[in-house]
């Protein structure tokens, strides 16, 4: 369970998040959505301790962010940040192996190698394992980063806009793999998404942010309405329901 209490955050004097209280249950995929600048990525990076918490409290699986040692937290939650630019020239297998670092601290054993092989297989990266990150496509690179987070073998997984710049095939593919991690391994996935239709199509729960406050939360079918699009996103679009899930007609 991820529990957020009284979380506020400001960057350079301008407030980004206002007094957020939020509880995310164990398991399933939760998508954070909202217009640009609503504070989605800030919220995610605070949970992932990529930024320091200014006011409020976050606990992940009972461990308080900011008080728990970095090493213990790295065994509880894995994060895939928005920028996946790596200055070093790494192969796909090198990258995925890094996911095991919190467990072996530089001295990988047989278990770690098993985990890496498993991640490479599951994310269909075996054929690419010796290729360098700057030689593969954007979709393959994002997949490699998710595989690294998977190899970290944590109950919680945070992903910040992993679909950036992906074509429809790569995006659907990646979301399928994310879905699978929640369904098959029981991981708790929190994902920031830009496109509402991917959120309604793949997530179990949505948390909608607007101007640093939570505007709505719940199952997609309940909250994605034309009223929400108008009030939160400022656009008048039709919402159609297909196979029990709402989709925005763009």
């Amino acid at each position: 369970m991820i529990r957020i209490e009284g979380l506020s955050h400001a960057i350079g004097g301008s407030p980004i998040l206002h007094d957020i209280d939020l509880t995310l249950p164990e398991g399933g995929v939760t998508a954070l959505i909202g217009p640009n600048g609503a504070g989605k990525s800030t919220l995610l990076s605070l949970i992932a301790r990529l930024q320091k918490i200014q006011a409020g409290r976050i606990t992940v699986g009972g461990q308080e962010v900011g008080r728990t040692s970095d090493r213990d937290l790295a065994r509880t939650l894995a994060v895939m940040a928005q920028s996946t630019h790596v200055s070093a020239r790494l192969s796909v297998a090198d990258l995925v192996s890094f996911g095991r670092y919190p467990w072996h601290r530089g001295r990988p054993g047989a278990i770690d190698r098993d985990h890496v092989e498993q991640a490479l297989t599951r994310f269909d990266l075996l054929a690419l394992r010796h290729r360098f990150l700057d030689e593969i496509s954007g979709g393959q690179r994002q997949r490699a980063f998710v595989a690294m987070a998977y190899a970290q073998d944590t109950p919680y997984l945070l992903l910040d806009e992993p679909l950036n710049n992906l074509d429809i095939a790569a995006a659907r593919d990646l979301m399928g793999l994310v879905r699978d991690m929640a369904d098959r391994d029981g991981r708790t996935v929190v994902i920031v998404l830009h496109d509402i239709n991917y959120a309604t199509g793949f997530a179990d729960r949505l948390v909608v942010l607007k101007d640093g406050r939570i505007a709505a939360q719940g199952q997609p079918a309940q909250i994605v309405t034309e009223a929400l699009l108008r009030d939160v996103f400022g656009t008048s679009a039709t919402v159609e329901t297909l196979q029990g899930r709402p989709y925005v007609v763009v």
Partner: peptide, 21 residues
């Protein structure tokens, strides 16, 4: 520091995520 430096070459955020702020 050699192993910790390896992690750092992934970039600041990824390194933090792996428990190496």
């Amino acid at each position: 520091l050699r192993h910790r430096l390896d992690v750092l070459s992934l970039g600041q955020e990824a390194a933090t995520g792996l428990g190496e702020p």
